[in-house]
Design a protein around this nucleic acid. Sequence first.
DNA 1: ATAACAGTTGAGCAATTGTTCAACTGTTAT
DNA 2: ATAACAGTTGAACAATTGCTCAACTGTTAT
Lengths: 118, 118
Amino acid sequence: MGFEKSITDCNVLHEDIVELVRKDMPEESIFFDLADLYTIFGDSTRVRILWALDIHDMCVCDIAVLLNLTKSAVSHQLRILRQANLVKPRREGKVVFYTLADEHVKAIFEKGMEHIYE
Amino acid sequence: MGFEKSITDCNVLHEDIVELVRKDMPEESIFFDLADLYTIFGDSTRVRILWALDIHDMCVCDIAVLLNLTKSAVSHQLRILRQANLVKPRREGKVVFYTLADEHVKAIFEKGMEHIYE
DNA sequence: ATAACAGTTGAGCAATTGTTCAACTGTTAT
DNA sequence: ATAACAGTTGAACAATTGCTCAACTGTTAT
C-alpha cells in the first residue's frame, strides 16, 4: 500500500481535529457522485425543467415554448437529466412526454429554498 | 409592457398543460438563485470542505492537509463558500477557523445521498 | 412514396470554472 | 526590525459547459 505524493504547502496545525474528521469522512468517490448530482441542479434551465415536470408531465415542444428555448436546447438538457435518472421519456405517437423520475427532487428544491430565504 | 422576442422553433402542442404549469411557476430570478446555490455544491472539493466542517470547525491548513490541496486552492474555495453564506471565518492569532454557517447543508447532502443510493 | 413535424444528435463556439503560481497581508516570535 | 508562517488575492491556463446550427430519426398523414 503506497502513499500518494503530497501536494499541500503547509503542515497540520491540529492533528487531533484532522484525524477526528478523517475517520468520519466517506470515501472520495461518494463526493464525486454528490457533486455530479448537484452540478445538474446548478443550471437554471435544468432547474426550471425539473420544476415544471414536477407540476405536470410535458413534451419537448411545450417545455421549449414555456421556457422560450429551442427544442434542441431543451432536448440536450433532457438528455443530461435522463442520464442522471432524474426524468423518464414516454413516447406517444410523434410526441415524447417527460416525467419526473425521482421524488427526492422536490425535497432538494425545498432545502435549497430554505437556504436562500433566511 | 412589451413582449419578449420568441426564440422557440416549435409551437405549443398542449396549451392547457403549458398554461397550468406557467401559472404555478415562480419568477425566473428564483431559479437563478437556486441554480447558483447548487452550482456551489457542484464541486467535489467544496462538498468535501462542507462535509468536513460539518464534523468539526477547521483552519485552512488542516483542510489543505486533509484534502491534499494547497492552501491557496482551499482559500479560493472558502471565499466562494463565504460569499454564499455557507461558512463563517473566525480568526485566532495567525490561524483562521471556518465554521459551517447553515443547518440546511446537512439536509441538502442527505437528500442528494438518497437519490444516489436508490 | 413523400411531405410534415416532434425530437435527437454531433460539431463548434463563447463563456465559465478550478487550480496553479507568485506576490501580497496579518499576526507572532526573536 | 525582521524573520517565520497562516492566509488571501489576482492573473493566467486548461478544462468544462450551454447553446446554436445543421443534419439526422421516427411517426403520422396525404
